[in-house]
C-alpha cells in the first residue's frame, strides 16, 4: 500500500528526516513512537504534502504511484487522510458544509457522482450517531469553540465519512482525558478493516492500549531506530527513550 524508502526531508535547510524506511500493507496498523522533536509530525506532514518541507532524497510510493509528486488534495482523493494533532478552526463554515464539500470534492476527483443534500445528510447522521456526536456539533463552525475531545472526535467523524484507505493519526491522544480517549479510540477501531491501514503517531503508550498496533517503530533523530511488535511499546513505557540516547528530562 505505502512504501517509504530512504526519505530525507529538510525544513529551512535543517534536516529533520534522515532516511526513513517503512512499508505498510493493507489492513495493518503501525505505531510510530518517539520523543519530542524526533520528526514524528514532520513525517505526517511530508506524507500529506504540506508546503515548507523539502524532500532531499528518497521516495514514497502509494498504491504504486509517486506520492511526493501529488498535490495534497490529490493525495486525499487517492485515499490518504491525516487526523491533525491540532485541528484547524474555520469560522463561519458549518461542519456539515465542510464535510459535504470535502466528500464531494474527493468523489469528483475520482469521477464518482456527487452526493446530494439528502444522501449526504443520511450518511453523516449515521456516522455521527456511531461516534456519539450530536447533530448540534454538525451545525457549529468547523472546530470553532470545540473542546479538545470534540476536536478529536470531529477528526474521527471526518475519517468515517471520507473512508480513507490510509489514515495517519498524529498525536490523537494529546489533550484528551481518558474518557474522551476511549471514545475516539472506539471510533478509530470501528474503522479498522482488512483494506484500511493506519499509521498511529504518539509519544505515549497509553493510546496503544486502546488502538492496538500490529507493528511499533521507534523514531528518534530522524530515523527509525528499532521496530517490533506491540510489546515494544510496553518496553518503551517502562524504560523511556533513554536507550536511544534521548534525555527527555532535558
Amino acid at each position: 500500500m505505502i512504501e517509504i524508502k530512504n526519505l530525507h526531508a529538510t525544513v529551512d535547510g535543517k534536516e529533520i528526516l534522515k532516511g526513513i524506511d517503512l512499508t505498510i500493507n493493507p489492513g495493518e496498523v503501525h505505531a510510530i513512537m518517539g520523543p519530542n522533536g524526533s520528526g514524528k509530525s514532520t513525517l505526517s506532514y511530508v506524507l500529506a504534502g504540506r508546503d515548507g518541507y523539502e524532500i532531499t532524497e528518497g521516495s514514497v510510493s502509494f498504491f504504486g504511484k509517486d506520492l511526493l509528486e501529488m498535490e495534497p488534495e490529490e493525495r486525499a482523493a487517492a485515499g490518504l487522510f491525516l487526523a491533525f494533532q491540532y485541528p484547524v478552526e474555520i469560522p463561519g463554515v458549518a461542519n456539515t458544509t465542510f464535510l459535504k464539500s470535502a466528500l464531494n470534492a474527493i468523489r469528483k476527483q475520482r469521477g464518482e457522482p456527487e452526493l446530494d443534500a439528502m444522501q449526504f445528510l443520511k450518511l453523516v447522521r449515521e456516522k455521527t450517531k456511531a461516534l456519539n456526536m450530536t447533530d448540534e456539533m454538525l451545525k457549529r463552525a468547523v472546530n470553532v469553540g470545540f473542546s479538545g475531545g470534540e476536536k478529536k472526535r470531529n477528526e474521527t467523524l471526518q475519517m468515517a465519512v471520507l473512508q480513507p484507505k490510509f489514515a495517519i493519526l498524529d498525536e490523537t491522544d494529546s489533550g484528551l482525558d481518558i474518557d474522551a480517549l476511549k471514545i475516539v479510540a472506539e471510533g478509530v477501531n470501528a474503522l479498522r478493516s482488512p483494506e484500511r491501514s493506519m499509521l498511529v503517531i504518539t509519544h505515549y503508550q497509553r493510546l496503544l492500549d486502546y488502538i492496538v498496533p500490529d507493528h511499533v517503530h521507534v523514531l528518534a533523530f530522524g530515523k527509525i531506530q528499532r521496530s517490533g511488535g506491540k510489546e515494544l511499546a510496553l518496553e518503551l513505557e517502562k524504560n523511556g527513550y533513554a536507550e536511544f540516547g534521548v534525555n527527555e528530562a532535558a
Binding site: A48, G52, P72, E73, F81, I90, T97, A102, L103, A105
Partner: peptide, 25 residues
C-alpha cells in the same frame, strides 16, 4: 496556511478552499 492545508488535506482544491473560507467569513 494552516486553514488552506487542512481543507486541501480533506480533498478541496486550493481555489475551493479559499472560497469556503471566504464564504464562512
Amino acid at each position: 496556511e494552516d486553514q488552506l492545508f487542512y481543507c486541501r488535506q480533506r480533498g478541496l482544491s486550493e481555489e475551493d478552499a479559499v472560497s469556503l473560507i471566504v464564504n464562512g467569513f
